[in-house]
Design a protein around this nucleic acid. Sequence first.
RNA 1: GCGGACGUGGCGAAACUGGUAGACGCAAGGGACUUAAAAUCCCUCGGGCACCCCCCGUGCGGGUUCGAUCCCCGCCGUCCGCACCA
Length: 876
Amino acid sequence: MRPDRYNARESEPHWQRIWDERKIFESRNDDARPKYYVLEMFPYPSGRIHMGHVRNYAMGDVVARYMRARGYNVLHPMGWDAFGMPAENAAMQSGAHPATWTYANIDTMRRQLKSMGLSLDWSREIATCDPSYYKHQQRIFLDFLKAGLVDRKTARVNWDPVDQTVLANEQVIDGRGWRSGALVEQRDLTQWFFKITQFAEDLLEGLDTLDQWPDKVRLMQRNWIGRSEGLRMRFAIAPDSRLPAQSDIEVFTTRPDTIFGASFLGLSVDHPIVRALAEANGKLKSFCDECRRIGTSAAVLETTEKQGFDTGLKVLHPFDDAIALPVYATNFVLMDYGTGAIFGCPAHDQRDLDFANKYGLSKTPVVCPPGVDPASIKIGKEAFDGDGLLINSRFLDGKSIDEAKEEIACKLESRELFGRPQGQRQVNFRLRDWGVSRQRYWGCPIPVVHCDACGVVPVGASDLPVVLPQDVDFKTPGNPLDRHPTWKHTTCPQCGGAARRETDTMDTFVDSSWYFARFTDPWNTEEPTNLPAISKWLPVDQYIGGIEHAILHLLYSRFFTRGLRTTGHADLDEPFKGLFTQGMVVHETYRAGDGSWLAPNEIRIESAAEGRKAYALAGGAEIEIGSIEKMSKSKRNTVDPDEIIGTFGADAARWFMLSDSPPEGDVIWSEEGVQGVARFMQRVWRLVGDMKTIAAPAGSGRPAEFDEAAMTIRKAAHNALAKVEDDIVRLRFNRCIAHANELVNKLGQTIGSIESPQIGAGLAFACREAAEALVMIIAPMMPHLAETCWADLGCEDLVSLASWPAADRSLIREDVITLPIQINGKKRAEVVVPRDADETTIRSIVLADDAVRKAIDGRQVKRVVIVRERIVNVVV
RNA sequence: GCGGACGUGGCGAAACUGGUAGACGCAAGGGACUUAAAAUCCCUCGGGCACCCCCCGUGCGGGUUCGAUCCCCGCCGUCCGCACCA
């Protein structure tokens, strides 16, 4: 007995169980069909999934299910980005061990993801906090170390003196630790680094090959890498101010052409020369300390004035000994870019101009914009950095900027100063090496030991993994690994003497930099990956995730892939062939009179012609409907996927997530919207039932003749198939859904107008064909409803295993077409013409048309523009 | 400040990137069925008007074109990224 209503709550677990038992989504590495690897960014196991996950995984699942139907061997795995701070914070607050907390969260979230009906290969599940995963990460670290891709050097870090840990830049808010609130100090610590800068050029060039990435992301990475070509040049210190150990100062500049506009040298307060001078100069020292204290956060930089401290040193202009330039210690020159020193040319650099104005330094214009009289140039508050010709520059006068740059570079390169060339061309990058040391417990241990006799010694491969100790306490601040009573004491792999383990763990971005590769052979106990599996599956054909990872995660993964290649673990450069960044899930906010936020399930909406109003469920007070914002706990505008799935079903949640907005944009979750989806689902269920009563049995042959109703149905079905095919591969899910809606509308209308005596073989076949097409079309998005309909229609096996019925595009081509007719660019009429009509025929049909003649109204026809199968424009 | 994106009905959006602007959905209004409600079905739904005609309309002002949401120039506004990188 076919129920009147489709019951998602019964149906969804039923099909999930069948999919699970038959393991139909597990992919094999020895499957010979063409591969397709679709991957969504794996989640951090924070506790529960949120609607953003639902959207992300719904998108990936559509792609996976569609490509499977198209005959591909699809890899669609899932795992957990399971190391990280929140687990330690939870341990500090509740006392639960990070591992216990993390695995409990994973269990919850796995159940939630399974309730979404995702076609995932759970047999490949990995968790980065598992020793079976991080063992291989340690191996990769050691291989990178051996290959010279790892460095250990001192670096300036944000140090939280209360928590006794290093903080990332984004964890420092207004100069204070985000958790402790303590004033953050800048400390020089010895840290581990991945030498990502070694691949700077390659990472930049590789972007050009990533034509299936959003331009926006490529641009962001390009800017982040920040390549610039310039010149290192040395200035001799004037003899009377020369220091004992220092005869010259080297600067980096991208504008050597402006050398005759130079009026000072600016040095970072951390420049060795400044440091040395500060030893003997208390005022300079306190200036430097003050600059360091203020820090470099964005908000601070906005308001901080350019400041300098005259060191008393003078340097000689490289092309005129008679010019001596003052040397300042400044707060705006960075030590870790270029040489930590610049020459300032106020006329053509805004920062230098600000500085010069403050300290009354000269500002000679040396580039004259085209069409401007050099004598008329006045330098006020705005520096000119545009193009022009050189002036006031002696031998450079009249040259272009590029010619002048070239000339200065050649001159200085071929000239010696104190026994070395005075200039050297250099390409500089904004990109810095990737510091991976974290003074935390819940991360992958860095597998080296420190031996007093042998120094830093890698742990032997057979001793991996270096496993985190279980018995740790989080009551005291600092690194639990460091204060663990026994864990760090070990013996040196080299000399056998007493040694200490490295107690830093790796940045969790390391964990996510190669997980996509591990999925290709997650069972491998010996190696991180193996080349046949890598070659088979990588690159990921379609990677889907949030734009917030546009730089770090994606850049690190690209670096790692190059590193894996260098160390023989992989054989490609670019891990992600296609990238898609989906938008956020946003929701209205609700605010009570007292300013407190209410959750969507605490209010009731009433809508009428005058507008919508919200009332509190408790008490009934009217609630202000606020702006639409990203779902967040603080604004309480979240909805819980479990509740939505429990009420409307996973299919409804998935469909709505894909329906309303283009996938790269934000989608507004609304109760009304998801109710609309629920109505749609019942409509599909009824329609399939209606069509079934007409439809021929499954597998019936195609008759030779189709009547008009049958043709209408067939055309609608094939038209929808064709449009969905075009849109789904471009991830335009919102359009796919519009096509599905149109098909349902069309089929409903046509079926509704059929009188039962009319039903012949043609119509029966068309109904069977169209009903199956409809089910196939919705299946990637609403797999459970689709399975139920598929079974109801008596189709073979599962729709999840069925092949996509390729659209017959010849059916969509009409023999006669309706052409819109414009008179002087405005649409005035339509005519029906044969598709293959030539221009003369069309012209005469158009000009004979009553509506056209009326619109022309006797005026002279000057021209008739005919665009084939598109439009006709009559110019009068 | 630099770089980028975007502006279309009451709302989310379509429009094959130069060819019928507003598909599809949400909300709203009217009607049918019903004792009633829900569900379902039908109609209307950018603005104006003399309402089967016609005029206006894709942030604003120009331009190119037979024809512009789309291309060009100049404004206005919103959002995002980077942030003293010499």
